[in-house]
């Protein structure tokens, strides 16, 4: 998971059924990271609810992008779930109006591609925290772009 410059956190969560734990967290600035932990942790309720609701309709062709999970006073929380139930969460500053749905969507897509690369690494153990430098730099570049 991650947060972007200017208080725009990106967050990424893995789900192993009932066992959500962070694979990667990144936030800028990092001083209030715990707060984002709470934000993202609670957002998982919504993610799960959405996933289960979608699951009822069509399992195969579901939209990975979950959209705005919920708005808080200061942040907007967006969610994305891969087919393997890995969750991406992006938290952005509410005041940042330049980021609209489409931008967020493309950010998720980028994130997903990069995550796929990480998973392709034969030395990566699925479920371990992500320590890939490439992934790191990708996230950094994304955070820089958005501020």
């Amino acid at each position: 998971m991650m947060t972007m410059l200017g208080g725009e956190p990106f967050l990424l969560v893995s789900k192993q059924e009932q066992q959500n734990y962070p694979l990667y967290i990144r936030s800028v600035p990092s001083d209030s990271e715990l707060k984002f932990h709470y934000t993202v942790h609670t957002s998982l309720d919504v993610v799960e609810e959405k996933v289960s609701a979608v699951g009822k309709v069509i399992v195969d062709q579901r939209e990975l992008y979950l959209g705005l999970l919920y708005p808080t006073e200061d942040y907007k929380v967006y969610g994305y779930v891969t087919n393997s139930k890995v969750k991406f969460v992006i938290v952005v500053d509410s005041s940042n109006t330049s980021l609209r749905d489409n931008e967020i969507r493309s950010m998720f897509r980028k994130l997903h591609n990069s995550f796929t690369d990480v998973m392709c690494n034969p030395f990566y153990n699925p479920g371990d925290p992500i320590q890939s430098k490439v992934f790191d730099s990708m996230v950094s570049s994304m955070m820089v772009q958005t501020c």
Partner: peptide, 12 residues
């Protein structure tokens, strides 16, 4: 097995 749940908030 692996750790269950969100360690950062659990620790807190």
């Amino acid at each position: 097995g692996t750790h269950r749940g969100w360690a950062a908030v659990q620790m807190r």
